[in-house]
């Protein structure tokens, strides 16, 4: 079985984002990591391949520096990687999905595709659906439990309010992974060393016949979300504190 895992190269969520110009950010000083949700997809793919045999291929659309992120994914047990290079962190979801599809077609279509439920940088929550749409295969997102048996996959996903759905579909399909699916492994030193020797094929968007200028969504502006300047502390006995809190929330803020 061939499994592709789509992995995004994103700033560490603990990193401070320094905005440059209208819509840029300084990416040279911050740490980039495997998109946290994608780790659940990598782990699930590697576990399936360990159990049933098969090959796990990491597919990334990103800047050339994303090479390091693919190496991290390879250290978790994937076989090899494909990097489709772009010159911007923000390609729109349509072009990203087209690039993922084209790269997979060139390499040979997989039996199963994993993505994370979304990326923590652009938070668009749609690339997996578009990839599935272009490939004409089923897609489910926010999957927290998965069984793959023969040509079928059965996924459990949360649908809001704590309710869960159990959905069956045929392979190939696209699975958007989230927390609960598994515990992603921490690569050990020998795994990291081994990953350095694994193969990563590199190609550009243009090599795949995709025009980066054909985007339908443009990032016009980035601005910091206003930070609160520190809490107004409510003092006194517990009784006094609570009475004052309720007063403030009712009378000043009008939120109670």
């Amino acid at each position: 079985m061939k499994i592709c895992v789509c992995v995004k190269h994103v700033p560490d969520t603990a990193a401070t984002i320094k905005i440059e110009g209208d819509a840029g950010f300084k990416d040279s000083e911050i740490k980039f990591v495997v998109n946290p949700y994608d780790e659940y997809g990598i782990e699930e793919a590697v576990k399936l391949a360990e159990k049933n045999g098969g090959e796990v291929v990491i597919v990334t659309v990103g800047k050339p520096e994303a090479d390091a992120t693919i190496r991290s994914a390879l250290a978790m047990g994937a076989e090899r990687g494909i990097l489709v290079t772009t010159d911007s962190q923000f390609l729109d979801a349509t072009l990203t999905a087209k690039a993922l599809k084209a790269a997979m077609e060139k390499d040979g279509l997989p039996d199963l595709i994993f993505t994370g439920k979304g990326s923590v940088d652009s938070e668009t929550f749609q690339t997996q659906y578009r990839l599935a749409g272009y490939l004409g295969v089923p897609v489910v997102n926010e999957v927290s439990k998965l069984t793959v048996d023969g040509g079928n996959a059965v996924a459990e996903l949360e649908v809001g309010g704590g309710d869960k759905q159990v959905i069956e579909m045929k392979l190939p399909c696209v699975i958007g992974a989230t927390k609960g699916l598994n515990e992603p492994r921490y690569p050990k030193f020998p795994d990291i060393m081994k990953a350095k020797k694994k193969k990563i094929d590199q190609m550009s968007l243009a090599d795949l016949g995709i025009d980066a200028a054909a985007r339908a969504v443009t990032l016009e502006k980035l601005e910091p979300v206003p930070e609160r300047s520190g809490a107004k502390m409510i003092e006194g006995s517990v009784e006094e504190q609570v009475t004052e809190l309720i007063r403030v929330l009712k009378e000043d803020e009008k939120v109670l």
Binding site: V120, A216, L222, E223, V225
Partner: peptide
């Protein structure tokens, strides 16, 4: 145009759709 969170709630992005 729409404004939405980018970078896990650290920034807002204004996006224009064509």
């Amino acid at each position: 145009t729409a404004k939405k969170s980018h970078f896990s709630g650290k920034t807002f992005a204004t996006l224009k759709v064509d």
